[in-house]
């Protein structure tokens, strides 16, 4: 009898998804601790709760595909392959950071991984993703641009400009909306005339679908299918992944606009234990092994913190570097 997980991916791949979600969660929870200690400063937007989206989506893409995101992007970078030590060092503002400590939490970037950046102006990444897709198509490269954004971004003008443009020029862009229901404290139905976000693409003749963003397998399958469509047709596609952030918008936000009951419902749908349970139920692994995976991730995160702590600050002279070529 075929089971749901095994029908989707080989065992090792399934375990990798689990590990990536755990690593993302532990990394974020460690960030919260380091923020409280004053080691991480500035804005800090954590991804806890949304892991199934970054992990499932990345698994559904090719390594050559471009990924762009907003400012809640630690997990997307790490899952893509960014060294957690260099990401943590970036958050600490150290010279060993992935962007030499110049970008911080909101501006991770690694061109070797085709991770083309975290952008902190809501929706700023839309036209850039379109431009990368144009360059790929013009240069006849086999790659698409995957553009992550939140539900709040769909009311920006450049969301509409970019969807229109991507369809008009027939560009390979996969738009991935992480609908966690809140743009800071404003719930979707209070900001969007049409709260069912994926339906908004009809004005641009872009196919779209909604997927359960708390289910890593569902996200993986939806993104894989969508990415194949984009690759085949060189037309954009749109996925709305319905998810939830377990923390506030940023560390400065106690999230008082959400009820405890609502929070509990979503916590009960935590994508990590959900996958763990299914892995055990299908006989793919044991709960002991899952605990070992978690321990392994904790070590990676501890090493990242140690690396960040011990890394040097940027030299003052660094301030003038990298403005111009």
């Amino acid at each position: 009898m075929e089971t749901r997980l095994r029908a989707a991916l080989p065992d090792q791949e399934l375990l990798k998804l689990y590990e990536q979600m755990v690593l993302s969660r532990e990394f974020e929870e460690s960030c919260a601790e380091q923020y409280t200690k004053g080691h991480i400063t500035g804005f800090l937007h954590l991804y806890s709760g949304q892991e199934a989206v970054a992990v499932g989506a990345t698994a559904g893409l090719h390594k050559d595909d471009y990924i762009l995101s907003a400012y809640r992007e630690h997990a997307q970078a790490i899952v893509r392959g960014a060294d957690p030590r260099r990401v943590m060092a970036e958050l600490f503002g150290k010279s060993t950071g992935i962007c030499k400590g110049k970008g911080g939490s909101m501006h991770l970037f690694d061109p070797d991984l085709n991770f083309m950046g975290g952008y902190a102006i809501v929706g700023g990444q839309f036209p850039i993703a379109v431009g990368l897709a144009f360059a790929a198509k013009y240069r006849q490269e086999d790659r698409i641009a995957a553009c992550f954004f939140g539900d709040g971004a769909v009311n920006q003008g450049n969301f509409h400009e970019s969807l229109n443009w991507a369809r008009l020029w027939e560009l390979p862009v996969l738009f991935i909306c992480e609908n966690n229901f809140y743009g800071i404290g404003t719930e979707v139905h209070r900001s969007s005339a049409l709260a069912s976000i994926h339906k908004r693409t009809c004005g641009y003749d872009i196919p779209s679908e909604k997927v359960d963003g708390m289910d890593v397998i569902a996200v993986y399958k939806a993104i894989k299918h969508a990415a194949e469509k984009v690759r085949e047709t060189s037309h954009p596609y749109f996925i709305e992944a319905v998810t939830y952030r377990f923390r506030g918008h940023s560390m400065a936000d106690p999230a008082k606009y959400r009820s405890a009951a609502e929070h509990e419902i979503w916590k009960s749908r935590d994508p990590i234990p959900a996958l763990g349970k299914e892995l055990v139920a299908e006989g793919i692994t044991s709960s002991d092994h899952l605990a070992e995976i978690r321990d392994k991730c904790l070590v990676v995160v501890q090493e990242a913190v140690k690396f960040a702590e011990e890394s040097p600050w940027p030299e003052d002279s660094e301030v003038y570097n990298d403005i111009y070529v």
Binding site: F126, F134, A145
Partner: peptide, 25 residues
């Protein structure tokens, strides 16, 4: 392919150029 009319979307005219420049053009 090389000389293209665009919609009246100035922010995106520039933004698409930013992305294309990052992508090697």
């Amino acid at each position: 392919e090389r000389v293209r009319d665009t919609p009246i979307s100035e922010n995106t005219i520039v933004g698409v150029a930013v992305g294309a420049a990052m992508g090697g053009l």
